[in-house]
Simulated assay, not measured.
Amino acid sequence: MLGKPKLYVKLGNDPEVEVSNVINGLQFLGDSTSPNVLNTYRQNTGVDGQTLIASNFDKSTVNANFYLRYKSYYDFMLAKHEVYRLFSNRRSLRIRTDAEPALVKYVVATPFAITPTEDFANDSKFTIPFDNPSGYKYSLARSDEISTDNEAVQMGMYLPTNKDLSYHFTGTSFQVFNPSDIAIQPYEQRHDLRITIKFSGSSLTLTNTTNGTSWSYKNAAAKSDVIILDGINTTLNGAAASVNTDYGNIALNTGWNSISVTGATEVDITFSFPFIYIG
């Protein structure tokens, strides 16, 4: 027999908590959500129908259902306050369930009411609608923190089973796997992709030959220098250094991406990003 559903909540740098452990009598019943696709069209005068201009994932709603059991009106008021204190704090919460333990959503609670199931009852059923501004689910761990046998992996993440997964490379030709439902696009969609680079040579160019995106660091560097391409911004040893680049960027298609490195004699490169899933 399966256990009761569990909801884990993390606020900022606070420790993650399971809601039934921190609020007496509260039981999570499960949640539901679905992608919210926003299509934009252009109407052409004199032409039937409309032309699709763009299709984007809009913010979605996560409906989390709860059951609260209490002994008295006074216990009810205390528990009600604890629920509001945990969820309604005007800050983004990271939530995940035991059904998808390796996937998280970053959500904000919207208004909700907690009332007894009937007059003089000792229980309440209520739903908290959370806004999910990104519309995405993310992997609990980033790519460079994941191995195929740790707790940050679950079924449905579409990780390869026949090949060791690594995001740290020391060669000038390698492959980066993106198991996400969508492409990772730091420029177009502002997705989180951090590439940490150490190299020796007069310059360095990274090229994703799978989709043609590229980024070049035009100055010389020593192996002790740490260059980070964080989305579309570059730093050198912590200082802004985008001026040393061609202002390019690297995107990752879904699946395998072939990356080539030119202009450097020694390289040490790490790709770090959360995997993105829809639904």
Results as ranks from 00 to 15, higher is better:
127 T>N: 14
111 P>N: 10
6 K>P: 00
105 K>Q: 10
110 T>Y: 01
16 E>R: 11
89 N>F: 02
139 S>G: 15
230 D>F: 01
84 Y>K: 15
157 M>A: 09
206 L>S: 10
24 N>Q: 08
42 R>E: 07
185 Q>G: 04
129 P>Y: 02
203 S>F: 01
67 Y>E: 14
69 R>D: 15
234 T>E: 04
5 P>W: 00
46 G>E: 07
249 N>A: 08
226 V>R: 13
234 T>R: 10
219 N>Q: 14
175 Q>P: 00
121 A>F: 07
152 A>I: 06
84 Y>S: 11
240 A>G: 12
270 T>D: 05
175 Q>G: 04
45 T>R: 15
206 L>Y: 10
221 A>H: 03
87 F>D: 10
236 L>Q: 06
52 L>E: 14
26 L>H: 04
161 T>C: 03
200 S>T: 15
168 H>I: 11
205 T>S: 14
95 I>Y: 00
237 N>V: 05
143 S>Y: 03
261 V>E: 10
65 N>R: 14
36 N>P: 05
274 P>Y: 03
213 T>M: 02
225 D>S: 12
207 T>F: 00
143 S>F: 02
130 F>M: 12
46 G>W: 08
262 T>H: 03
32 S>P: 00
143 S>T: 07
41 Y>W: 10
271 F>S: 04
260 S>I: 14
226 V>F: 06
6 K>Y: 02
144 D>L: 07
278 I>N: 12
251 A>G: 07
211 N>E: 03
138 Y>A: 01
165 L>H: 12
265 T>V: 09
224 S>H: 11
247 Y>I: 04
176 V>S: 04
23 I>P: 00
62 V>A: 04
134 S>M: 01
175 Q>K: 13
140 L>A: 09
79 A>C: 11
74 Y>P: 00
118 E>F: 13
219 N>C: 02
20 S>Y: 01
142 R>T: 09
106 Y>T: 06
70 Y>L: 12
56 N>E: 15
134 S>F: 00
199 F>C: 13
104 V>E: 02
36 N>H: 14
63 N>H: 14
116 P>V: 10
72 S>I: 04
145 E>T: 13
165 L>Q: 12
71 K>I: 09
246 D>Y: 06
261 V>R: 04
114 I>K: 12
121 A>N: 12
99 A>K: 12
18 E>D: 10
166 S>I: 12
11 L>D: 08
107 V>Q: 02
68 L>W: 05
64 A>D: 07
174 F>H: 08
164 D>H: 13
114 I>Y: 06
276 I>F: 03
276 I>Y: 01
22 V>H: 07
260 S>E: 11
267 V>N: 12
201 G>F: 05
231 G>R: 02
252 L>E: 01
